[in-house]
Design a protein around this nucleic acid. Structure first.
Length: 435
RNA sequence: GGAGGAGUGCCGGAGCGGUUGAACGGGGCCGCCUUGAAAGCGGCUAGUCCGCGAGAGCGGGCUCGGGGGUUCGAAUCCCUCCUCCUCCGCCA
């Protein structure tokens, strides 16, 4: 959410930001008119309320002195009726303004490249060398099944398309990756670990920006106010909704392992193979709360913290700065980490690290205060995947595949796999061996 | 799911419907005292919104879990929702 005063005073900058994002700016003027009406209504009703307060004090005084106050009371009855009416009008306008404001995206940071599509994203750096194979590397949806690690058929039996059952060592590898990531971020990078609910309410989703605009991307639980969380960004950021940090406590860093749920509406026929795009996936999320002057440094270090996981696992990747047209709704700036997938001959997003500046903090009411200063200010929030566990899983399977069909387990991961060094090929689905 | 109880400021804890934004205590901060500290004494100690102002600031509105109602006037009365606690049931 943008600041109203900023919107009024820098309408042109907001207009440009919308255009850079490839969005229409036609509603802006109408919005500003409604806002002007709203402020007029507030001024009017507050004048009447001030009058009422003065009269009430007078009535109290008269009663105490046993004098007649009935004339004044009668007049105030009328004033109160007026207040009620005007209040309603002000509330309506305020709701309109707020509703509209909630659908307005963040302003891109000045360092964000202007562009229309992902093609205009800017590659920032590359790490690692894609492994050379003297055979045709397989995509994980082949090897994952032939190694007896994934079972798509059984997942669709109990749930449907875009779900998977990890079986045997496949399940263990998923768990090992998550455990490894949490250990690195917790012990080496200083993040506080939390394990939040996976089911959340709409207020939390409004706070981080998924609602009201993107309800269609989410799973909602029947006729309740419960939703399945699409990312731990929601839970962890909302840990401090409507609260104020001590300035000296910032920057603060949290990490969380969660399951994430996305409806993937509108992605029919896209990336239907393998575990690239699932309705449920596990992710280790990094979230930071920072003071405004720190936040861009913190974005760099957050991105590096995520990169360390890929480096320790020996997975080649590149870092991409998203252009204005590809930038998420709430983000001011985003770096995507894209891991190399030899089986699919492409780089694929495995982490998205963003600075939201005060956009989420204003929605969620997250502030900080400098001791001695009376006025609080909004924090900057940041988050990034550190990393998407399922996508890391497939990157390991594809990058470490051998000619004989086996997969070497990266050394950093072996302590988490009971010392196992290699996943050996089996004959098809693990669970079919019991039939 | 059934039956009770409770939600007030940083914390504890008062509060006959009318100078109560809120007594009192604790904590914190500042000052006095002291070689230093403690004790003692004095003072200060919410946020947010609207308007005016270059700014320091000034004026006003709102806020006693959330929302609604009664009333000239609500922390105080009524309704409703939420959260927490106790007992029963059920469960991991």
């Amino acid at each position: 959410m943008l600041e109203l005063a900023y919107l009024r005073e820098h309408t042109d900058r907001v207009r440009k930001a919308l255009r850079d994002r490839g969005l229409p700016d036609s509603e802006l003027d109408a919005f500003l008119r409604i806002d002007a009406q709203r402020r007029q209504a507030i001024t009017d009703v507050e004048g009447l309320k001030a009058e009422r307060n003065r009269a009430n004090a007078e009535i109290g005084r008269l009663k105490k002195e046993r004098q007649d106050a009935s004339a004044l009371m009668l007049r105030m009855k009328e004033v109160s009726a007026q207040i009620k009416q005007l209040d309603q009008r002000a509330d309506e306008l305020d709701a309109q303004v707020r509703q509209w404001l909630l659908t307005l995206p963040n302003l891109p940071h000045e360092s964000v490249p202007v562009g229309r599509s992902p093609a205009e994203n800017a590659e920032v750096r590359r790490w690692g060398t894609p492994p050379a194979f003297d055979f045709e590397p397989k995509p994980h949806w082949d090897s994952g099944v032939s190694l007896g690690l994934l079972d798509f058929e059984r997942a669709s039996k109990m749930a449907g398309a875009r779900f998977v059952v990890y079986t045997g060592l496949g399940a263990r590898l998923e768990r090992a990756l998550a455990d490894f990531m949490l250990d690195v971020h917790g012990r080496e990078h200083g993040y506080h670990e939390v394990l939040p609910p996976f089911v959340i309410n709409s207020a939390a989703l409004v706070g981080t920006g998924q609602l009201p605009r993107f309800a269609g991307d989410l799973f909602k639980l029947g006729d309740t106010d419960y939703w399945l969380s699409p990312t731990a960004e929601v839970q962890v950021t909302n840990l401090f909704r409507d609260q104020t940090f001590r300035a000296d406590a910032l920057p603060l860093k949290f990490c969380a392992w969660t399951a994430n749920f996305r409806s993937e509406a509108g992605s029919y026929g896209k990336e239907t193979r393998g575990i690239v795009r699932q309705h449920q996936f596990q992710k280790v999320e990094l979230v930071k709360f920072a003071r405004p002057e720190q936040s861009y440094d913190e974005l760099e270090s957050l991105t590096q913290d995520a990169e360390v996981i890929l480096q320790k696992l020996g997975l080649p990747y590149r870092v991409v700065a998203l252009c204005t047209g590809d930038l998420g709704f709430a983000a001011a700036k985003t770096y995507d980490l894209e891991v190399w997938l030899p089986g699919q001959n492409t780089y694929k997003e495995i982490s998205s690290c963003s600075n939201f500046e005060a956009f989420q903090a204003r929605r969620a009411g997250i502030r900080y205060r400098v001791p001695g200063k009376s006025r609080s200010d909004y924090v900057h929030t940041l988050n990034g995947s550190g990393l998407a566990v399922g996508r890391t899983w497939m990157a390991v399977i594809e990058n470490y595949q051998q000619a004989d069909g086996s997969v070497v387990i990266p050394e950093a991961l072996r302590p988490y796999m009971g010392g196992l060094e290699r996943l050996e090929p089996s004959r098809g689905l693990f669970l079919d061996t019991f039939l």
